[in-house]
Design a binder for these strands. Structure first.
Length: 767
DNA sequence: CAGTGAGCGAGCTTCCGCTTGACTT
């Protein structure tokens, strides 16, 4: 018999805690929730006060078996699941599944994983808080009702296998609406005037002052006239102001900020960040990575202080505790920090090292002094114009936390790098080195990255640390959005430059609209979003989660009955579901583009059975419409009549090669040529399926065939020795086998290859 | 891997939030 059994959620936590408790304690883990609503159907008896039908999922059967055994062998049971709504529910399910006594079971919580906190927790047990449990049940049931009643409506009225939910549908809405802002955006350009001044004779770069004019000019002509004014003007220093300032460090990482910074500084996807952090956590190198709290344990504060003082000196230390800002935070864990702040680097792969270093720097910097700065602003007046030039410069007087870490921003171009301003006085005459008018374009709002979407969701209080990464996967798996790159387009930039009294004009180009790893909505995402906006606007409302969260809080405080809250939500919601099911037609997002210029038939685009499709003509009156699939990057919302008509030019015949026809088309993976039932890819950026000639097509086929011939080194019928991207290999039944080192592929016999294959097969089985 | 786009019907899909392995390649 074991004296005491402690149940926690995470096995890594169990291991740590066991070390702190004596041998009278055994610590086991529940691996999160052990029970959930039935998977097969709704899992809720609506008529019977929303009575939930809980079951133990298959993958949890083993854990539950082991927990039951451990419980039966123990005298006292302590449930130490996390101190939040979900943790309380886990405790309650454990009581129920392990058939414990609700009155006798000791519920304890650790605010941090330190000996002190754990001993303190053991001395202050309480009972399971049923109000908190009920608020979790309300949350769980509401999410199930929303997801499992709206999704089937989508299957009937839009497309099978789609999904909707309180969290994912808002994530999609954000992306769709941002795209529409970008589509509607009108790019304008104006001329921005910047100048380089110097006091008297130029004395090298150090004495140059970079200043910007207060006025911008819409047209090149006006900008040119202003430069002429400048050529004839005298420049004099107006005001000089020197102001001290401070900069403070960012709070320690929580899940969302870690995801953002790992994306900005290391280029990690949200899922990748979580996977690497999980490794570090399991290895005991960092604290728990799914958290919404910025607070640090007393121990971490003290340790960080020691590290800072010994590395940088007393002056650099400033112990601080940050208030958690995020909405709906439940603060069951600490911030994400190094388990041992005195450990600066860790072993492990490159990504683990990089992420650890980032976490270490952020934590340490948060406990360091403010940086002290001095900001200088001077204005420069013109003798013949009211336009004023302004120059700003900043110097760091004391670096403080900046010694270790600076937070990145989402703005890619850090063009406002602060320069040092040489000492100047009011009334001093300045000479220009050069003054230029540069064409600047306005930019549309940026598309979301995975990380910036997480940031936005968190601001809205939607989703939890454990669900940000899965939510982003879900909306991509459903095809609602895709993470993509765009090459961007070149556009002209006009520059006028005044130097030594002469104005010259030049033309440059810049790249506009280049995108890397951004979230683009797809047609089906836009259609589903519009459908939800039309029929379930309250569910996809940005405030919906915040409003129900308020009610969950009231349930937790015992001020509101959870079944009553659900009824009040469900009745009007369900009648909307019923009403929406009465809609006759499927929503296809159909858009009429105009009429065919020759036949006059209507041309439209819509979501078809196999994806977005363009259509010429109607099906009624025995008419046979023609169809063509849209290509990647074309949207139903933005495609033009001309682009749609162009789609019908493919597939097109390219003439004959050695007596057989060649056909060009565009597929999922780019343009192709079909010849004798085989497909040949066209070269990206070289060949265009609309214009490729018969000769060029024949050449592509010849090249490919020659490459294929080179590819086969030995041919033994069912077994072949081939030349691949990574060198020679053996293939049989679509299975590939590596060549042992030092073999000459030309000399292989069939026997040899069979030997190699059987050797690889047996070594595979043994692992 | 790429082409399809008639219609019917059975059986399937789906949520959010807590936790990690056990599976494949």
């Amino acid at each position: 018999m074991i004296e005491n059994l402690v149940i926690v959620e995470s096995p890594a936590k169990a291991k740590t805690i066991e070390k702190f408790l004596g041998k009278d304690f055994r610590v086991v883990s529940s691996f999160g929730h052990i029970r959930d609503l039935s998977k097969k159907n709704l899992g809720i008896d609506i008529k019977n006060d929303f009575n939930p039908d809980y079951e133990i999922p298959k993958e949890k059967a083993k854990v539950v078996r082991e927990l039951r055994k451990a419980a039966s062998e123990s005298k006292n049971i302590w449930i130490a699941s996390d101190e939040d709504r979900e943790g309380e529910a886990i405790a309650w399910h454990l009581v129920s599944v392990l058939k414990l006594d609700l009155e006798k079971t000791r519920r304890i919580v650790f605010h941090e994983i330190t000996r002190e906190a754990i001993t303190d927790a053991i001395q202050n047990p309480r009972k399971v808080d049923l109000n908190l449990v009920n608020s979790q049940q309300a949350r769980r049931i509401l999410d199930r009702l929303v997801g499992f009643e709206i999704s089937p409506v989508l299957w009937k009225k839009v497309q099978p296998s789609l999904s909707a939910g309180r969290v994912q549908s808002v994530a999609v809405r954000l992306i769709v609406e941002r795209e529409r802002e970008i589509i509607a955006f009108n790019t304008e350009s104006s001329f921005r005037i910047s100048a380089l001044f110097h006091p008297g004779r130029p004395a090298g770069d150090n004495s140059l002052i970079r200043a910007e004019a207060s006025k911008r000019f819409s047209h090149e002509k006006d900008a040119g006239e202003f430069l002429e004014l400048c050529a004839a003007s005298e420049f004099m220093v107006g005001n000089v102001s020197v102001r001290p300032g401070t900069r403070s460090p960012a709070p320690p990482f929580i899940t969302s900020t870690l995801q953002q910074e790992a994306y900005r500084k290391l280029g990690f996807s949200v899922a990748q960040t979580m996977a690497v952090a999980q490794k570090l956590y399991e290895a005991g190198k960092i604290t728990y990575m799914r958290t919404d709290s910025t607070s640090l344990s007393k121990l971490a504060l003290a340790k960080s202080r020691e590290v800072i003082i010994s590395s940088f000196g007393e002056k650099y230390s400033k112990t601080r505790q940050f208030k958690t800002r995020s909405r709906g935070a439940q603060e069951a864990h600490e911030a994400i920090r190094p388990a041992y702040p005195d450990v600066t680097t860790v072993t492990g792969n490159q990504n683990e090292k990089k992420l650890y270093e980032l976490i270490w720097k952020r934590t340490i910097a948060s406990q360091m002094s403010d940086a002290e700065t001095e900001k200088t602003t001077i204005s420069i007046d013109m003798s013949n114009s009211p336009v004023i030039f302004t120059a700003t410069g900043e110097v760091i007087k004391f670096d403080g936390f900046l010694k270790v870490y600076t937070e990145s921003t989402d703005h890619e171009n850090g063009e406002d790098d602060k320069l040092i301003i040489p000492p100047v006085k009011k009334g001093m005459i300045l000479l220009y080195d050069s003054i230029s008018a540069t064409q600047k374009y306005t930019v549309p709002p940026p598309r979301y990255t995975e990380a910036s979407l997480v940031k936005k969701l968190e601001e809205l209080g939607i989703g939890r640390p454990s669900t940000y990464a899965p939510t982003i996967s879900t909306i991509q798996n459903r095809g609602y959005v895709m993470r993509e790159d765009r090459a961007g387009e070149k556009r002209p930039v006009r520059v006028l430059t005044l130097a030594a009294g002469k104005i010259t004009s030049t033309s440059k180009t810049e790249l506009a609209g280049k995108e890397k790893s951004k979230l683009f909505p797809q047609d089906i995402g836009m259609i589903v979003n519009d459908f939800l906006m039309e029929n379930f606007s309250d569910i996809v409302d940005y405030h919906f989660t915040a409003e129900v969260e308020e009610q969950f809080d009231e349930i937790a405080m015992g001020k509101l009955k959870w079944t009553g809250m659900l009824k009040k939500f469900y009745d009007p919601f369900h009648s909307k579901v019923e009403k929406t099911l009465e809609i006759k037609d499927r929503k296809t997002g159909v858009r009429l583009l105009g009429n065919h210029p020759e036949t006059g038939e209507p041309v439209s685009v819509k979501m078809g059975r196999f994806g977005p499709v363009a259509q010429i003509g109607d099906a009624g009156d025995g008419g046979k419409p023609r169809f063509a699939s849209l290509t990647r990057n074309q949207l139903i919302e933005t495609i033009t009549l001309e682009e749609a008509l162009n789609l019908f030019r493919l597939p097109r015949s390219l003439g004959e090669y050695e007596g057989d026809e060649m056909v060009a088309g565009i597929g999922k993976f780019g343009p192709w040529i079909r010849y004798r039932d085989k497909f040949y890819s066209m070269k990206k950026g070289v060949d265009d399926p609309y214009t490729v000639t018969t000769e060029r097509a024949a050449e592509i086929i010849k090249d490919k065939e020659e490459n294929d011939r080179k590819k086969v080194i030995r041919d033994f019928g069912d077994i072949k020795v081939l030349n691949g991207r990574f060198g020679p290999y053996i293939t049989r039944d679509k299975q590939n086998y590596r060549m042992p080192k030092g073999t000459d592929p030309e000399k292989l016999t069939k026997e040899d290859t069979i030997n190699i294959i059987s050797k690889t097969e047996t070594s595979k089985k043994s692992t």
